[in-house]
Design a protein around this nucleic acid. Structure first.
Lengths: 192, 192
DNA sequence: ATCAAAGATAGAATGACTCTACTTTTGTCG
DNA sequence: CGACAAAAGTAGAGTCATTCTATCTTTGAT
């Protein structure tokens, strides 16, 4: 049954309280100067509850599980405009995402800075992106009539999903994104 | 002064004792079932000593610091055969390294398996490879007359240094290595 | 012989995460 | 409606990596 009763609602509320408390404390005092116990207290829950909701630990507190992300990437490839290349679709998709959005919403900018300034968070975010690797590889395979476990496809999927991290720390993220996609599309040119 | 006295020797011996004890215990019981305290005891040192020698923590116990690695990669690019491309040199270099050596020395195979079967170790090894990223980028830049902070070069350096991890878990690592280098050299071909 | 630095140690403290056993809520079913 | 099982939370103890502090010992240099 599609139970969307009080239970689910309360659960979601607790999760959100934790997430918000974590974000606030992280922004205020820095990731490393906040303990999970403090977050639990701030959200008025027990310590154990934190780990029930976020089994991946402290880093995961301010992220969602990445399944939406993955689904979106796959959809971007599958439902791309007719005639558009797979890489073209991915470039476009990423360009509108992650650290690339030029229209920085209010809290968004600060969160991005927090993440890129905190190694543990950055690394976890990469891991989240990479969770979608196999799904993306399958999608690309399906679109190009190859095997999903083709190493070249898996490599490509990984390389693409690493671009946000790679380009995000560049002075001009968009230019960086384009440069890296050019590399993946055309290969390495020995002479510029 | 080039002090190579008893002190240095003893220090090196302690370090090696720790490293060997760690490797033995990891192989016997698995990384996760070995405690740092046990390793200290097995090497007949104090717990704190372990962290003096290996500030990077438990994972680093069975690796050297990676500076040799980095130097070797850079040298491979700088001193490549005349007329050989940068990527050609890197391909050759990696092909003889890491999980690719076809002549598996005795303890080497087991160590490789331990690493690839232990997420924490795998991840740390990737980190070690990536430590050389900027140096490799500089080297490539120097050879091709571009700027070392060119994002395309940095991306290429990162992608190349990730190949051991990427190809290492494939059924045929050598074939995988070649496939990925082909991807980097020629770019992604939409149709096979 | 003397002294300062490097190496090593014991032991306590911190903090993330896990485990176990127990209570409270909530959805379901007779 | 009332009983009940599963889900959500909680308290508290325990494990383990890692850090810190204060102290001791060895070694190299003067």
């Amino acid at each position: 049954m599609e139970t969307v009763g009080r239970r689910e609602r309360k659960k979601a509320r607790t999760r959100q309280a934790l997430s918000e408390a974590a974000m606030e404390l992280f922004l205020e005092r820095g990731y490393d100067n906040v303990t999970v116990a403090e977050i639990a207290t701030a959200a008025d829950t027990a310590l154990a509850t934190v780990f029930k909701h976020f089994p991946d630990g402290k880093e995961s507190l301010i992220f969602d599980d990445g399944s939406e992300r993955t689904a979106a990437v796959v959809a971007a490839v599958r439902d791309r405009a007719p005639g558009q290349s797979v890489l073209g679709a991915l470039r476009e998709f990423l360009s509108a995402r992650g650290p690339f959005r030029r229209d920085a919403p209010p809290g968004f900018r600060r969160k991005t800075e927090l993440i890129s300034g905190t190694p543990a968070l950055r690394q976890y975010q990469v891991k989240l992106w990479l969770r979608g690797r196999d799904a993306l590889a399958e999608a690309i395979a399906a679109e190009t009539g190859r095997a999903g476990d083709d190493i070249a496809i898996r490599a490509l999927a990984r390389y693409v999903l690493e671009i946000p991290d790679l380009a995000g720390s560049e002075p001009d993220p968009h230019a960086a994104l384009d440069a890296v996609f050019d590399l993946l599309e055309h290969g390495w040119r020995e002479s510029p």
